[in-house]
Structure formats: structure tokens, C-alpha cells
């Protein structure tokens, strides 16, 4: 931090940087580092998407430089894009992905709001301790927790969920080998993985709701539910909306859950878009096509974020006004 202040100090001393645009210099290092690491790979990806790159030709030349110049892969123009956009599997995957975004985000918001309201309720003793325990899933590596959830949703009679169903006298379900149960399992797992982040944000927002508003509403005779809708919800709307947009983007790019659970099965029915791209790239050894899928996905998620950022005015700040 002292480094930062020293930089500030020096900059103030340089005469020609007096102009207000000098502040751009504070932002440039971050922007530069980010672009170096993300821009080249993305450009590379764009390049690959216009070739017929596959392991056999991409690595055919000598050394790394050859790989960077696409080896012996040849330019195929928009072929990969037209192939992808005319593949019915792609459109299925596209639809399932948006459905997954919609359902999982709805579930995430409901669960997180509920949990956040409970662990900030004044009647609950030890709520601080509870709050630090419930974020535990955030500290576990996703690959690990997803493997565990894979076990929870085992189709076997002794899978955890099936055992619980058994207690209530229900038949066991072949979770991962039937379409909608598998989709349901993805949603539950995604919800569990994402709730800590959402809860933290919601809890933070809830603590900022002015006490006086509640008191005033109580005096006016508003009940618990009416207070929630008229006082709490409006005050936390923006942070929760923001968290939802972020988590929607995460859902859109979910790869590990479908991949570890059943490779987007059964029969490619639940192939979320990243899994679809991965399968094209690796299982079928068509890197060019896989790259095209990834880029199409990026365009869509970019558009989604763009609309939300515009509409939610997330890039605005106090100092603009």
C-alpha cells in the first residue's frame, strides 16, 4: 500500500502529468497485465477457430513457435462456425444452458435470501458463528465438492438422495441417467456451490438497511411479510441484482458439474455449452470447432452481461452524478 502512495506522490511531482488524464496511469498497469494474459490466448483462440486445427496437425511442426502459428493446420474460413450453427446438438445445448441459467439463478436467489434473513435475524443467537460456518463450501475446491455431489446423486439404491427417498417410502431414482432428474441434480449442486457468495453479499446488504425504516414500518402496523416486501427488499435490491448477474454468468459457464456427473448426459441431452465445446475439442479432436463453440459462447455471455450492465447501471458510480 505504501508503494501505491509513493507512486501517487511521484506522479503529482511530474509537471506535464498535471492534466486530469494522468489518473489513467493508475488504471493502465492492471489493464495491461490483464490484457497480456487474456488477450493473447483469446486472439489465439480466434485464430484457431478459423482453422481445421486438430492434435495431429497443430503439433506437427517443430517446437513451440510452430504451435503458436497453428502448426500445419489450414485455414478453413467460416467453416467451423457454419458447422456449429447448423448442428442441432448445438442448439439443444444452447437451450439447455439458458434454461439452466434461469432455474439455477432463481434457486440461488431464493435459498440465499432465505439463509441470509435467518442468519441476520436478531432472535438467532450465535449468528456470526453460523455465518462463518455456512461459507465453508467456498473454501473447498469445486472439483472436490462436485465429485462428492456426484456420489450424493448416485442412481444406486444406496446413493444418499435415494436413501433419503427410501426413508419416505419413495422409489429410488436413476438420477444421472434420466434427463430431467439429472438436470435437477445439476441445479441443486450449482445452488449449493454458489450460495456462500450470494449469502455474503445479501447479508452485507441486509446489515445496511437502516433500522429506522423497520421501526417506522412497525409503528405503521406493517407485518413481517409486508415489511420484507416494502422495506427490506427495496433496500437490498441492487446488491442482490448485481450478485445474481454475476452468478448467472457463472451458471452459463458451468462445466464441472455436468462433466463430472454424466458428461452432459444422458445422450448429450443436458450438455451445457462449455461441455459441448469441450467435447467437440477433445473427444472428437477438433480444436478448431471447439474454439468456434467457445467463442460463440463468449459472444452470448458477453451480450448477456452487456445488457445487464447497461440496464442495471452497474458501471455507474456516485461521482458521475
Amino acid at each position: 500500500m505504501s508503494t501505491a502512495s509513493r507512486v501517487v506522490h511521484r506522479l503529482e511531482e511530474v509537471p506535464f502529468l498535471e492534466s486530469r488524464d494522468a489518473s489513467l496511469l493508475f488504471v493502465l498497469p492492471g489493464l495491461f497485465v490483464f490484457s497480456t494474459f487474456m488477450l493473447f490466448p483469446v486472439l489465439y483462440l480466434i485464430g484457431v477457430s478459423f482453422t481445421n486445427a486438430a492434435p495431429s496437425n497443430l503439433f506437427a511442426g517443430e517446437g513451440v513457435f510452430s504451435v503458436m502459428t497453428f502448426g500445419e493446420a489450414t485455414f478453413v474460413g467460416l467453416q467451423n462456425y457454419t458447422d456449429v450453427l447448423t448442428d442441432p446438438e448445438f442448439w439443444n445445448s444452447f437451450g439447455v444452458t439458458w434454461l439452466f441459467v434461469a432455474t439455477s439463478v432463481a434457486l440461488k436467489i431464493c435459498l440465499s435470501l432465505g439463509v441470509a434473513l435467518v442468519v441476520t435475524n436478531e432472535r438467532v443467537r450465535g449468528r456470526r458463528l453460523m455465518r462463518s460456518f455456512i461459507i465453508l463450501p467456498m473454501g473447498l475446491p469445486a472439483i472436490f465438492t462436485i465429485t462428492v455431489w456426484r456420489g450424493i446423486f448416485s442412481s444406486a439404491e444406496f446413493g444418499l438422495v435415494n436413501q433419503v427417498l427410501g426413508i419416505f417410502g419413495a422409489e429410488s431414482v436413476a438420477w444421472l441417467s434420466t434427463r430431467w432428474p439429472a438436470f435437477f441434480a445439476y441445479n441443486i449442486t450449482e445452488m449449493w456451490l454458489a450460495y456462500p457468495f450470494m449469502v455474503i453479499i445479501t447479508v452485507s446488504a441486509l446489515q445496511d438497511v437502516p433500522e429506522e425504516l423497520h421501526e417506522a414500518a412497525t409503528v405503521d402496523g406493517a407485518g413481517l411479510i409486508s415489511r420484507f416486501f416494502h422495506v427490506t427488499l427495496p433496500s437490498i435490491k441492487r446488491p442482490v441484482l448485481f450478485a445474481s448477474i454475476l452468478t448467472a454468468a457463472a451458471s452459463f459457464q458451468q462445466f464441472l458439474i455436468p462433466y463430472v456427473f454424466n458428461q452432459g448426459g444422458p445422450a448429450r441431452a443436458n450438455e451445457l455449452i462449455v461441455v459441448y465445446g469441450y467435447r467437440e475439442a477433445l473427444s472428437f479432436s477438433e480444436y478448431g470447432r471447439g474454439a468456434a463453440v467457445s467463442l460463440i459462447a463468449v459472444v452470448f455471455i458477453g451480450a448477456f452481461m452487456w445488457i445487464n450492465v447497461k440496464r442495471g447501471k452497474l458501471a455507474d458510480g456516485v461521482s458521475d452524478e
Binding site: 493473447f40 490466448p41 489465439y44 469441450y278 452481461m305 450492465v309 458501471a315
Partner: peptide, 27 residues
Amino acid sequence: KILFLYVLLTQVGGGLGVALLIGLYAI
């Protein structure tokens, strides 16, 4: 513009898939 770009990129970075990884590794 930068602010906008940052918000846009908060989530787009990941998930670019295997080709990205190969590019990164090559560099």
C-alpha cells in the same frame, strides 16, 4: 469505457476452454 469493460469481463474470463489453455501454455 474501462469501467464498463471491467464489469463485462468479471465473468467472461473463465470457461474459454481447452484451446485457450493450449495458447496460454504455448506462450
